[in-house]
Design a protein around this nucleic acid. Structure first.
Length: 422
RNA sequence: GGAGAGAUGGCAGAGCGGACGAAUGCGCCGGUCUCGAAAACCGGUAUGGGGGCAACCUCAUCGUGGGUUCGAAUCCCACUCUCUCCGCCA
């Protein structure tokens, strides 16, 4: 959520940023509602002040003049009426406000879609195969480490079963990632709920806009997380963090649940786009001055992980048309998958500034006794598991169809190769 | 799932229809005293909204949402959460 002050004082900049994203927004209507809102507040506050004053007097004196009491009765019902009006105005105002995206940073390229994202860095080179590399779905089935057919029987399309060394490889990857984040990158590990309340999903900006992308339990009104970002964002909701607490650097492994309705028919083979997948999520709470540097550090950490796995990758700066709703600037990290001939987004690192902190009321004091102000939040994958596994399988495949496990993972897997016999 | 108790400021805890945004204690900040510290004493110490260039004025908030009343932390209703006991359970 943007602040109303920003919308009021920098209306043109806000409008331009919405247009740059290829969206249209009800900014004028918001300003209108804001005006109406303040009028109503001023009027009710005046009446309430009058009522407080008279009631106070009435309480102190023995006399209870009936004409004053009946006047106050009227004032009371007028207040009630105005409160109803205000509620309606605020309801529309709030929902419009929640619909306004964050303002992209000045150096974010303007563009309609991901074809305008800018490659800022490429690391390594595609592997040099003396044979035709296979896509991971073929490798997975021939090595008997992924079972698509039976997963569909259990849960429908876009689900999968990892078997044997495939399942072990995934577990090894998750553990290695967490260990590296914790012991080398200085993050604190979290384990979080996989379902959250409506309020929490609203706090991180998922609801109401993206309701149809989430799985939802009607009975308890709980929402299955599409990313650990949702619960982590809300950890410090409604808190005022004491001086010196920031920055907070968290990492969490969790499953992510996504309907993928918008992508119906796309990437239907393999495990690139699925309804349930594991992810290791990086998350930081910082002071406003610290968020740009934190963004760079998080990108560097994610990249470092790709490098240590020995995977050819590139870093892209998202253009305005591709940029997430809450973000002012996002870098994507993509791994090359030679078997499917595709770049795979394994991390998307975003600076959300105070956009999530505002509705969630995540505040801090810069120093003892200072006025609370909004913290900044940043999130990014470190890394998305299935796509990283795709890259490992396709990059590390051998002529005989086996897969050589990246060296850093071997202490965790306990084997070096996934061969046909597994 | 059943029975009971509870939810008040950073913490502990009083208040149970009017002078209560809230006693008191602790903590924290500032001051006096001291070479310095401790103790003692004095003062200050919530968050958010609206108006104002500002000083400042004003409104709201005692778990949440309604209700009664001229007036609600206090009375009524619903909900949420926490704790204790019983049952069930990975």
């Amino acid at each position: 959520m943007l602040s109303i002050e920003t919308i009021r004082n920098e209306t043109d900049r806000v409008k331009k940023s919405i247009a740059d994203r290829g969206l249209t927004g009800g900014i004028d209507r918001i300003i209108e509602m804001d005006l109406r809102r303040r009028e109503l507040i001023a009027e009710t506050d005046m009446l309430r002040a009058r009522r407080n004053e008279v009631s106070g007097r009435l309480g102190r004196s023995k006399e209870k003049p009936p004409e004053l009491i009946s006047e106050m009765r009227e004032v009371g019902s007028r207040i009630k009426q105005l409160e109803g009006d205000l509620r309606d105005v605020v309801a529309e105002y709030d929902s419009l406000l929640l619909d306004v995206p964050n303002i992209p940073e000045a150096d974010v390229p303007v563009g309609d879609d991901d074809s305008h994202n800018i490659v800022v860095k490429t690391v390594g080179a595609p592997p040099d195969f003396s044979f035709d590399p296979k896509p991971h779905w073929e490798l997975g089935e021939s090595l008997d480490i992924i079972d698509f057919r039976r997963a569909v029987k259990l849960a429908g399309s876009r689900f999968y079963i990892f078997k044997g060394k495939g399942a072990t490889l995934q577990r090894a990857l998750i553990t290695w990632l967490l260990d590296t984040h914790v012991s080398e990158f200085g993050m604190q590990e979290l384990y979080v709920p996989h379902m959250v309340t409506r309020e929490a999903a609203t706090g991180s900006g998922q609801l109401p806009k993206f309701a149809d992308t989430m799985y939802h339990d009607e009975e308890d009104d709980l929402w299955m997380i599409p990313t650990a970002e949702v619960p982590i964002t809300n950890i410090h909701a409604d808190e005022i963090l004491e001086p010196g607490v920031l920055p907070l650097k968290y990492v969490a492994h969790s499953p992510s649940y996504r309907r993928e309705k918008a992508a119906a028919g796309r990437d239907t083979r393999g495990i690139k786009r699925v309804h349930q997948f594991e992810k290791v999520e990086m998350f930081r709470f910082t002071e406003p001055e610290g968020s740009p540097a934190a963004l760079n550090e998080m990108v560097a950490d994610a990249e470092e992980l790709c490098s240590r796995l020995g995977l050819h990758h590139r870093v892209l700066l998202q253009c305005t048309g591709d940029l997430g709703f809450a973000s002012i600037k996002t870098y994507d990290i993509e791994l090359w998958a030679p078997g499917s001939g595709d770049w795979l987004e394994v991390s998307s690192v975003s600076n959300c500034t105070d956009f999530q902190a505002r509705p969630a009321k995540i505040r801090y004091r810069a120093e003892e006794g200072a006025r609370p102000q909004l913290a900044h939040t940043l999130n990014g994958s470190g890394l998305g598991i299935p796509r990283t596994l795709i890259a490992i399988m396709e990059n590390c495949q051998q002529a005989d169809g086996s897969i050589v496990v990246p060296e850093v993972l071997r202490p965790y897997t306990g084997f070096d190769v996934i061969g046909p016999a597994s």
